[in-house]
Structure formats: structure tokens, C-alpha cells
Amino acid sequence: MKDYILKDKKLSILSKLIIIGMWILLSKIIDNEVIFPTIKSTFISLIDIVKNSDFLNIIISSLLRSLIGFLISLFLAIITGILSSVSKIIYNLMMPILNFLSSVPTMAIIILALIWLDSEYAPMFIGFIMVFPILYETVLKGILSVNSKIITMAQLYNVGKITVIKDIYIPSILLNLSLVFTSSLGINLKMVIAGEALSQPRFAIGSSLQLQKMYLNTSGVFAWIIIILLISKIFKFIVELIKRNLKINRWK
């Protein structure tokens, strides 16, 4: 097992080295900063971006948009998921909404969001429409996948309904959510940034990316990509830390 993990780490480092190697190679072959910037120019752009007085404002604004949007999605997914599991009417009402969100092209909904909403809120809504269906289905699955025999056991032993909800249903929902938490948080961040690029709020990673594109500063775009990757990594690390502290998977 340990050998396997070490091998895994080695492979991960190797793949990163290959990507950097290919970057160096491609930038040398292409030899055009606008089409494919070098590592050096990207690094310089990165320092410029970080040194900018608005940098923290931009990062905090985008993170807030992303987190608020995600929490709204999570809250609504939990409420509607629970209601759908107890009421066939709500389950059937939710079905066409989810089908609509999954079959209508995302870009069409984004355009509508840009028309209807303020530039501050449109990115949040765009993140919401991508992440809400995932979270809703996860919550519903968490409730429906509870073993009915365990519920019968609880009923036979006269265990109170609140205890059943607290000790069986909520852990089952959390367990299922923990499996999609990191990925849905990542998707949400990406969608919020895409929304920002289109709606152009004052302080936003997406707006900054768009600005770099307008100036044909590709190394700036690359630098922002690196910053987004770092934020994703930090998100992942925090989620893992929370999971470990809550000991969600200790029984596995």
C-alpha cells in the first residue's frame, strides 16, 4: 500500500515535470509571446498581478461570489432534496426544472442571466445553475440510499424520529455530499469566473482575465490560470481538512 502511494506521488511529480517540459518546448518552438508565452514572462506577469493594489480585492470578491453562490446552492439543494424525498409532488415538480437545467445549453442560461441580473449577481447565478442539480441529486440519493431495514430496526426499537434523522439520514446525506464536495466547489468556482468574464463586475478574476485578453497579454492570462489553480488547490486542502476534522470517513 505504502509502495503504491509513493509510486503515485512519483508519477504525479513526473506528470507535472512533463507539463512544464512541454510548456518550455512549445514556447520555444512557437516563439511568440502573444500565442504561447514563456515561463519567464508568465512569472513576471504573475508578480505584476500580485503586486497590484487591487489584487486582494479581486481575489476576495471572486471567492465571496463563489462561496455565497455555493452555500445558496447547498442550502436549496438540501431543502429541496429533503422535500422531494418525502413528497412525490415536490419530486415531480423538481424533475422538469432539473431536466431543463441539464438539457438547455449553459450558454443560453448564462445569456439570460446577463440580461436579467446585475453584473455582481449574474456570476453567482451561473455557478448556481451548474452546481445546484449535482448537489440536489446527491442529497436525494443520500436519503433514498438509506437501508430500509435499518429504518425498520429503528422503528421496532421505538427509536424517536429526531434520532433517526440525526443519526441515520443526516450522516447519509453528509457522506454522499462529501464525495462531490470538492468537485462541485471547483466547478462552481470555474463557472463563477466564466460568468465574471462575461458580466464584468468591477473586482473579479473573470474581469481581470478578460482585461488581459483585451490587451493581448497572454502571459497575464496564464498567470491568472496559475492563481485559479492555486485557489482550487487551497479549496481542496480546506475541504480535506474539514473532512478529516469531522472524521466523516473514519468508518470506511
Binding site: 437501508n147 431495514k149 435499518i150 430496526m153 429503528a154 421496532l156 426499537y157 421505538n158 427509536v159 424517536g160 434520532t163 443519526d167 441515520i168 450522516p171 457522506l175 468508518w251
Partner: peptide, 28 residues
Amino acid sequence: KDMSFVFQEDRLIEWKNVKDNISFVLKH
């Protein structure tokens, strides 16, 4: 009358340890 049950399957809750599985039916 209070009754206890043993089933064909153990019906233990996977995310609860032995102590918590027993305490689950004693809480009330």
C-alpha cells in the same frame, strides 16, 4: 411491552462504532 429484535442480518449502522450502535437503541 418493550421488545428487542435480532434479525437475519445484523442491521448495524456502518458509520457508528459498536458503542454508538448499541446506544442508538437506548437513547430514548
